Amino acid sequence: MAGTAENTEGPATGTGGEPESSDSLRTFGAFLQALREHAGYSREEFGALVRFSKHTVASVEQGRRIPDVDFVERAEGVLGNTGALRKAVRHIARQPGLASWFRTWARLEATAITLETYECRVVPGLLQTEAYARAVSLSVPPLPDAAELEARVGARLDRQGLLSMERQPPTAFSFIVEQAVLERHTGGVVITRELFDHLLDVEQRHWNVELQIMPLRQPNHPGLDGPLQLLETPENRWFGYSEGQENGRLITDPKSISLLTQRYAKLRSQALTPEDSRRLLERMRGAL
């Protein structure tokens, strides 16, 4: 599971022998550093202005961290709103910590206006806490070394910038998660309690996020073929994504997209409503 769609942070060398490269990240970082220094800010001063720590600024400048949407937008404001950083960030071609087969989908995610996710294995990566992400990464052999683990967790947390309501337009998110995934208590009770609190908080604070839980008992289940994702681009084109062990598949065929759309619509109708899902999550949280 070291490369699943919601555990997409695979090893540094992806399938097919494709080596990981961070040249574009380092280039973006050097560009940001040059602009910051030209403006006369130290990393600490700049971090305070963009509301990120000086360590995050250093990670971005050194090509070790992908700048999220909020970081780029705030940096633009501080550095003159030239649009240079917005243009440069589009050229970050590869993302350390992301499995090679997931990168195309990740690039589509970055500009999607609608994203729909059904997950029956793990909590979707966009909703994970850092501790849960670590527990998932350490659950499935082969175990990562320290650097690889940090890359996986960092990539997952960076992707969560997509949830921002400051994006224009904000992405509309729909998540359907099997109750069994939440009942698994991945990582133990403490990590699960933190995860439940996080899910409740995200659902409450983000009006663009809808979370539904699929109950344990569902005799007629349209998701038996496994997890699926759908997204809509700003041009109103739809793409799908499915994944198995050590592989993933971007789906572009209109007939296949239509089929996945039908399945997701049925999943959505059979899952608990967002309100009932929240109440169930609160009860599960209280029972820990």
Rank of each mutant, 00 (worst) to 15 (best):
L195K: 07
P11E: 15
G248D: 13
L98S: 06
R263Y: 00
S174A: 12
R86C: 05
M1E: 05
Q128E: 03
F102E: 01
I213W: 11
R167F: 07
G47S: 05
D145T: 02
E150I: 13
V78W: 08
L267F: 13
A112M: 09
D253G: 13
S53W: 00
L127T: 06
S174L: 12
E6Y: 14
E203L: 05
D70M: 06
A93L: 11
A146L: 13
I176R: 11
G97I: 01
G77T: 09
T233L: 04
P11V: 14
G16R: 10
Q95R: 13
D225A: 11
E44Q: 10
P274H: 14
R90Q: 10
P19G: 06
P169E: 15
G10R: 04
R217H: 07
G63F: 02
P222F: 02
A93S: 12
Q160H: 06
K54N: 01
E232Y: 01
R121G: 06
G80R: 08
V60N: 01
E232R: 12
S174P: 08
H185M: 13
R103I: 12
R159A: 11
R86I: 04
Q179R: 14
L199E: 07
N208D: 00
R94C: 07
L216K: 05
Q33R: 13
N7K: 02
S164I: 07
E18T: 14
F28W: 07
H38Y: 02
H206D: 03
I251W: 09
N236Y: 11
M284C: 07
P67Q: 08
E232T: 15
E210I: 05
Q212L: 07
D201V: 00
L162F: 04
T186K: 14
Q168N: 12
S24C: 04
L98T: 03
E116P: 02
P234E: 09
S24M: 01
S22H: 09
R43C: 05
I191T: 12
A271C: 14
L195H: 06
G248E: 10
E18Y: 12
M1A: 11
V136W: 02
G29C: 05
L281S: 13
G244W: 10
L108F: 08
W101N: 07
L231Q: 07
E275G: 07
E18C: 03
S21P: 00
A133G: 01
N236Q: 11
V50Q: 04
A12L: 10
H198C: 06
T27K: 03
R249H: 10
T111Q: 04
A48L: 13
V78T: 13
E109W: 00
L35H: 04
F173V: 05
V60F: 09
S164Q: 12
N220T: 06
L224D: 03
T111R: 07
A48K: 14
R268S: 15
G226K: 00
V122D: 05
